[in-house]
Amino acid sequence: MILFEVVLSGVLVGGMYGLIALGLNLQYGIARMMNLAYGEALMGGAYTAFWFFMLWRIDPLASMLFSVPVAFCGNWLIYRYLLSPLIRRAANQEILEADTILVTFGLLFVFQGLALVQWGGEYRGYTYLAVPIDLLGATVALNRLMAFVAAVVLALALYWLLRSTRLGGALRAIAIDPVAAQLVAVDVPRLSALAFAAGGAIMAAAGTLVSMFLSFNASIGIVYTLKALIVVIMGGVGRMLGCLMAGLLLGLAEALGAYLVDPGLTLAINFALFLLVLLVRPQGLFSRG
């Protein structure tokens, strides 16, 4: 019975990993921007939920009506005014990648610094939907279950969007070859900006959900950026279901490792798995390329 409960908590944590990686997959996999300030959207979503809840007793889920559009517009502006000039002047993809990493690395400190000045450095957290739910005889927290469901729904929706719609086809074309996509009348700058902005918006939503069960502070963003990056690379850049699967795999490995081997080794198991994937399938577990 304990084993089943352990597997279940692993699956829930894995879903959260998948959720935080989906947005980065849009930004890096489709818009081709390695955004190191990606996690700051999560920090923003988490703070919005926290302050709305603490100051005005607004439901954290409702706070997404504010934080998600703001993150969308903010990320769109970043893409349009900070990253687009880099695309125009870069001679090739390598130079572009180096430039964006430097710019977004700087952005990371700007956002982190602003949050530190504004809200101070202390840990924040609130209690919302921390109620036990009986799931097939095991007890799980409702807030964690919700993050998991959101991850699955979002991953399926994105998968469907990319596979079965005209817009998705255009986005996939950009992911494969932005120059060729332009030749077949895909509006590359506009759609890339859209994918980038949507990635940020998803991360803000993830921030809201994660803030319900994990505490956070002004410098938490980079932690999630790195975690998301591992998941994206493991699952395959641009693969939405792969991303979810990789997240689940990591979560399960952590929980089972903690229970069967030793909790102190979860991080080691995580990175061992990542190394293994890099060695055996460097293109990602669920990539056809």
């Binding site: 944590v13 959260m16 994990l214």
Partner: peptide, 20 residues
């Protein structure tokens, strides 16, 4: 008597094991 890594995101498996 067990440790867990800094930055762990779930401690429920450990709590369940202790409860048992």
């Amino acid at each position: 008597f067990k440790s867990y890594p800094l930055g762990a995101s779930d401690l429920s498996p450990q709590i369940r094991e202790m409860m048992a």
